[in-house]
Design a protein around this nucleic acid. Structure first.
Lengths: 188, 188
DNA sequence: TCCGAATGTCAACAGATGTTGGCATCCTAG
DNA sequence: CTAGGATGCCAACATCTGTTGACATTCGGA
């Protein structure tokens, strides 16, 4: 057996993972303040004190649970004509894979650290990925912002507010309709 | 002097108004759960018990404070070419007039009754206003949904998440860039 | 096998929150 | 002028929240 200090599976890793998974679900469903540590612990079938031991505080737990990688594709490798469609498709898929993003979005509406995390994701993941396409023109930043606005509006109305008219849309419909709009912002 | 029962100003009307105004500010800034009755009462310079007397409960207060009329213009009277621009302009103005809408949006992310209210506004104000333009075609509902998605995305990123790239935009820039996108959804 | 660390449970605390009832004060109708 | 309702404040309640510390149990290396 290997030494612990050299990255062997600890038994607590499973517990931590269970807590994080439960946290994501609760945060995604209830938002930051209504997702209580007790509820999260109950769903993970452990004691609330464990959460404190492993994550220090509720905010620490959220920080761990809200780590999210958008896995932005390399847009330079996408045919110019299909950039818009590719973008919407990617976001829809990535969001529905797990509920980390929904947890982040719901929490960001009322919790400042969560909002900060959201802004960080824009700055460190979205903007750099769009840069090769938007170039360094004066309004590149503006267009990147509007693309995010568009895309987050979709997430908000479909998964958070659940506007029936948006929920009813098929994925294909969204791609067909929103794709060209993003395209117009990407390649004017 | 007139009888009270026949709609003369009661002294409590001023108090109620002060409470509602303070409630809107707190709900807009903090969301539903973090906006406490005590904080609202303190801002209105009255006792928390007054809130209960006049609005019954926190949810009752929110229901009163979150009443919002988008004052949608008659789009049939707008030149076809300018529909998109007219829409963005109207929303931007209406949002920034008072913070009722921000209170609603923030709260709707984590509070179910607030979400329901949001859906009701879509159904009773947005959809009917768009109907004369979108007609009754099969995908009219879909396009109405996507218009809302677009517009709410703007409100979310600019006022709630405060993405720097979106906050930095001038009103004119937004109108010029988003107007044509809405136009494409309104008159394909 | 045995000891110390890791893991987990339990009970409790302090503070905040929505809410309630009692009591003082003000205004106004009769 | 005066009684009764409207208006307001105060103190308290039950509950929930994040958080803490003490204690039990389990595990792994010597």
């Amino acid at each position: 057996m290997q030494k612990r200090t050299q990255e062997r599976h600890r038994r607590s890793d499973a517990t931590k993972a269970a807590i994080v998974a439960a946290a994501r679900e609760r945060f995604a469903a209830d938002g930051y303040e209504r997702a209580t540590i007790r509820a999260i612990a109950a769903q993970a079938r452990i004691d609330p004190a464990m959460v404190m031991r492993y994550f220090g505080s509720k905010e620490g737990l959220f920080a761990a649970a809200a780590q999210f990688d958008l896995r932005m594709p390399n847009l330079a490798a996408v045919p110019r004509q299909r950039l818009g469609v590719a973008l919407v498709t990617h976001f829809l898929e990535r969001w529905e894979e797990d509920d980390t993003f929904m947890a982040l979005l719901r929490a960001a509406a009322t919790n400042e650290p969560a909002g900060e995390r959201m802004r960080a994701i824009f700055a460190s993941q979205v903007a750099p990925a769009l840069a090769p396409v938007l170039g360094t023109s004066a309004n590149a930043r503006a267009r990147a912002g509007l693309i995010s606005s568009q895309v987050l509006g979709l997430a908000l109305t479909r998964y958070v507010l659940r506007l029936p008219a948006v929920v009813a849309l098929q994925r294909k419909q969204i791609v067909e309709q929103v794709g060209p709009l993003l395209q117009a912002l990407l390649v004017p």
